[in-house]
Simulated assay, not measured.
Amino acid sequence: MRYVMILTGDEAPWNDPEIAGPLMEEITTWWGKWFEAGKLEEGGAELAPSAGAKTVGRGPDGAPTVTDGPFLELKEVVGGFIYLQADDIDDAVAVASTWPCIAALGDRVEVRPVMER
């Protein structure tokens, strides 16, 4: 079955090269391990900082409105997503629980089944 890992956390540490550099090396190693094991799919994305985002919503008159940045003032934002191939949700969670940013930064990973229509 297909699942997605939704990666969330604080963006601030990624601005520090002493944190980001070694962590990216860990992530590259993590990616290689799980890709070779057949648990990761091509695709997914690392997202640019949320400061460059635009949020589209419904305004008071029902027409779309656009605001700069994320909709809410949050410390944790979505930083990216990764597609998984797993036997079941427990298998997907087992892979997600090894995501390096959980231990290093206290980030969170949401695991969801992908809708196949």
Rank of each mutant, 00 (worst) to 15 (best):
34 W>E: 01
105 L>E: 00
103 A>W: 02
46 E>R: 13
16 D>L: 04
96 A>Y: 04
77 V>Q: 13
13 P>D: 09
9 G>D: 12
84 L>K: 11
41 E>M: 09
58 R>P: 00
51 A>I: 10
96 A>I: 03
25 E>D: 15
83 Y>E: 01
68 D>Q: 15
89 I>W: 04
112 R>D: 00
46 E>K: 13
28 T>C: 11
14 W>A: 10
42 E>I: 06
114 V>S: 07
115 M>Q: 11
96 A>T: 04
1 M>H: 08
61 D>A: 15
63 A>D: 04
60 P>I: 14
88 D>W: 02
4 V>P: 00
29 T>C: 09
46 E>N: 14
99 W>E: 07
64 P>K: 13
68 D>C: 03
32 G>C: 06
106 G>E: 05
66 V>E: 14
80 G>Q: 02
19 I>Q: 14
7 L>K: 07
108 R>H: 12
26 E>H: 12
32 G>R: 14
94 A>M: 05
36 E>N: 15
91 D>P: 09
52 G>V: 15
69 G>F: 01
86 A>N: 04
80 G>A: 04
31 W>L: 05
102 I>D: 00
97 S>L: 00
72 L>Y: 05
85 Q>E: 04
116 E>R: 12
102 I>K: 02
96 A>Q: 07
94 A>T: 13
84 L>P: 11
67 T>F: 09
22 P>V: 05
54 K>E: 12
39 K>A: 08
41 E>T: 02
